[in-house]
Design a protein around this nucleic acid. Structure first.
Lengths: 368, 368
DNA sequence: ACCGTAAACGTTATCGATAACGTTTACATT
DNA sequence: AATGTAAACGTTATCGATAACGTTTACGGT
């Protein structure tokens, strides 16, 4: 009798306490309480460890209790809390990805490549966009690191010239990999395209077509990838005995078709008349093509246009655009495989950073 | 003296224990131990609560200790563990987004819209791709829910016809919002385009151009958005006294340009000769355009082509493609605002679900 | 019958951070 | 001087799950 009263009192008191807590946490009492292994344990009169073992398919448990636990877990609509698990396991089974934007084929494709490998190995992928902002990139990296992701894959924003945030990650023991937009100064896993050779190859092609005044439209040369393609362009000119002309080089502040249109128009009206343009990316080539149409320039007779990346669009515009194809999906796969290898490596100290360089292919179309 | 020995012993014993633990956790001792508030507390001889208060800018702490804590925190390179914080706060300040793919402008743009709003309110955004697979969509939703995200925004995969996973989320008290690819049967927040009206409008436009045999190329009609555009198409025909012909309706299994090319070629060679095609999406219109070129069909004279979505590419192909523009970025913003309102709503029971319907705009170009 | 052993569980500490609550101290009030 | 009060802290419980370790029980070997 007394025990019953005591029990009632306890229950009542406990409910009151819970409501106070809930109120303070800004959670209404209408919110559904989530089921934990404690609830299951209580219902079955076993310990939480037993429940945990049953649900993890441990060997230290009898078949009957395991089945009983699983049955009750289903009945109670139990869902494991991944945060709690990650906290104690010190591993979230998540890869973080930071790209300038997902709004371009190269990036979305490479992300799909990363995902395809990650999923197979039981990892999830968190995607973040830096929007080409250095500050945002740093913020994102901090968030990812503080969220205990197991590894981070980064393609730098166009503004990024300081790599302290990457060094910090290494300092904290978090595996990092750079892809496509990389830097030279840090010993670290990398996956890139052979931009120098790719650029050289396609500019060679322009020269073979008889072009002699070849312009280059690119982005900030502080980006290694931009610089490499620029150097490839320059190298091709030199090797073919064509004088390099700084006036034919345009450094855009943004990678947009609109800006490319404006830049090319300026170049054309300035009296410098190129007979070909090699663009850092297809979306820029698209701008040159659009501008050419407006200006009544015949492509490829009066102006040959070459891009880089082999975006779908280059195939469908008219004239279709000559470009270097990059296996973006495979680049993503490679990157994921490489960082997973680092993550699951035993002696971190002895891990040897590898740089994978993927070869691009020349795709000749109507614009050259 | 004794105390010192005891201390040494304790330290030694402790290190040994730690190494055993580390070994078992499959973490080498070379791994950097991360700094926690405990470490800071120990160094300053204060409690962890004090450290926490100092770092959270609490009022219940003196200025001096606060500054001292912050100083040491910086010196020790402290980084807060977001998982631990989320676990006790029961809120991760993360929004989960599930889309069929990020590889199309509409989706990547709407995600950018979601992000722009979320960031301003202190929320992060986790992006997942279902790859048009129902099973993967369900898995992703489960992962997101189990990761304690504060809300989930979903655009259904093309396969999704069962909505139990959404009902489950509601059951668990997790705010969900559907956008673009929605369903009718669940009371829930939604953001969509006025697809019926949009389709009607652009088909009206084709009819105004004198077209009478207008084909429709779309996706699975189980998708509400597909069905709505189909109904708009049909409605326009009926209102304009044009007989509906089932032979002119193609239901694609995938949203790809390649498939659209094949489908249109089949349609054309089958003897059914449409004088116009209204495509569910721009990438499909692109396929029809490519096929037309191959087949030597004059656009728009012999065949008018209309798309939906106003992807960048529609502006740059030749002839440029008439389409309905969808404010994808704004749709994302709306969706984020709506779900954040639900997340921060006091009495969940009384929250009224809203359905925002965004109007698309007709953009007439050369293809019609 | 005795002991060793291993299966099958319970107990406790832990992950990192924070909320709830208790305690101390200084200072003001009457 | 006695009491009130609030600032500033420490202690403890908690979030949910799991690892480490201790304990019980049954069973086999000798």
């Amino acid at each position: 009798m007394l025990a019953e009263i005591a029990h009632d009192f306890y229950v009542g008191s406990n409910r009151f306490k819970n409501e106070k807590i809930l109120k303070h946490l800004n959670v209404t009492s209408t919110m559904k309480k989530s089921i934990t292994i404690k609830d299951i344990a209580k219902k079955l009169n076993v310990s939480t460890a037993t429940v945990s073992r049953a649900l993890r398919n441990s060997s230290e448990i009898s078949k009957e209790t395991k089945l009983a636990v699983i049955k009750i877990a289903k009945e109670m609509h139990y869902h494991p809390n991944l945060l709690a698990r990650s906290l104690i396991k010190k591993s979230s089974k998540v890869l973080g990805v930071v790209v300038p934007t997902i709004n371009r084929q190269f990036w979305s494709n490479s992300i799909s490549g990363i995902e395809s490998v990650a999923y197979k190995k039981g990892y999830k992928v968190m995607i973040f966009q830096s929007a080409e902002s250095y500050q945002k990139e740093v913020e994102i990296v901090e968030i990812l690191a503080n969220s205990m992701v197991d590894g981070i894959l980064i393609a730098f924003s166009k503004e990024t010239q300081n790599y302290d945030h990457i060094e910090d990650l290494k300092e904290r023991g978090i595996p990092v990999l750079l892809f496509e937009r990389v830097c030279d100064s840090i010993p670290i896993s990398k996956v890139t395209t052979d931009d120098f050779l790719g650029a050289k190859r396609i500019v060679n092609h322009l020269i073979e077509r008889g072009k002699k005044r070849i312009a280059f439209i690119g982005g900030p040369l502080s980006l290694t990838v931009c610089m490499d393609r620029f150097l490839g362009y320059k190298s091709s000119l030199v090797e073919n005995g064509i004088p390099f002309d700084q006036n034919l080089v345009i450094e855009l502040s943004e990678f947009t078709t609109e800006l490319s249109v404006i830049a090319f128009k300026n170049l054309w009206s300035s009296g410098e008349s190129p007979d070909a343009v090699f663009c850092f990316a297809d979306i820029l080539a698209l701008g040159v093509l659009a501008a050419s149409k407006e200006l009544g320039i015949k492509v490829p007779e009066d102006l040959a246009i070459a891009g880089f990346g082999n975006d779908d669009i280059t195939k469908y515009v008219s004239p279709s655009i000559t470009t270097m194809s990059q296996p973006s999906f495979e680049i993503g796969q490679l990157a994921a495989k490489l960082i997973l290898k680092e993550i699951n490596f035993e002696e971190k100290d002895e891990f040897e950073y590898k740089t994978e360089i993927v070869k691009p292919d020349l795709i000749v179309r109507e614009s050259t």
